Simulated scan of single mutants.
Amino acid sequence: MEDTLSAPNAYVRAAETAQYVRSQLPEALQNPKVAIVCGSGLGGLADTIEAEPKVELAYGSIPNFPRSTVQGHAGKFVFGQIGPQKTPVALLVGRAHFYEGHTMDLVTFATRVCKLLGVETMIVTNAAGGLNQNYHVGDIVCLNDHLFMAGFVGVHPLRGPNIDEFGVRFPPLSDAYDLDLRRRTHQAWVKLGLDKQQRRLHEGVYAFVAGPTYETRAECRMLSMLGADVVGMSTVPEIVVARHAGMRILAFSLVTNVAVLEAGSRGDDPEIQSMSHGELTEHLSKGKANHEEVLLAGREAANDMQALVKQILVSLYE
Rank of each mutant, 00 (worst) to 15 (best):
Ile312Asp: 06
Tyr59Ser: 02
Gly41Lys: 05
Ser265Lys: 11
Leu181Tyr: 05
Gly278Pro: 07
Asp229Gln: 05
Gly101Glu: 05
Ala207Leu: 13
Leu117Ile: 06
Pro66Leu: 03
Ala188Cys: 09
Leu223Ala: 10
Glu52Met: 14
Leu173Asp: 02
Pro161Met: 12
Glu52Thr: 14
Val314Lys: 05
Asn9Cys: 04
Ala10Lys: 08
Ile49Gln: 00
His146Thr: 07
Ala15Val: 04
Ile62Glu: 02
Gly160Lys: 10
Ile36Lys: 00
Glu279Lys: 10
Gly232Val: 01
Gly130Lys: 00
Val236Pro: 00
Ala18Glu: 06
Gly287Ser: 10
Pro172Lys: 01
Phe152His: 15
Arg184Gln: 15
His156Ile: 11
Cys220Tyr: 03
Leu147Thr: 04
Thr185Asp: 13
Arg182Gly: 03
Arg217Ser: 09
Pro270Trp: 14
Pro171Gln: 05
Gly227Ile: 07
Leu91Ser: 10
Ile82Glu: 09
Leu313Ile: 12
Arg200His: 10
Gly118Tyr: 01
Leu296His: 15
Tyr135Ser: 03
Leu250Ala: 02
Arg199Asn: 08
His136Glu: 15
Pro32Gly: 03
Ala58His: 05
Glu2Gly: 09
Val190Glu: 12
Glu219Tyr: 13
Ala96Phe: 04
Glu292Ala: 11
Val113Cys: 12
Gly267His: 10
Arg199Lys: 14
Thr216Cys: 04
His97Ser: 09
Ala28Asn: 06
Gly246Asn: 11
Ala228Cys: 11
Ala28Met: 10
Gln197Trp: 04
Leu42Met: 09
Arg200Asp: 00
Leu254Thr: 05
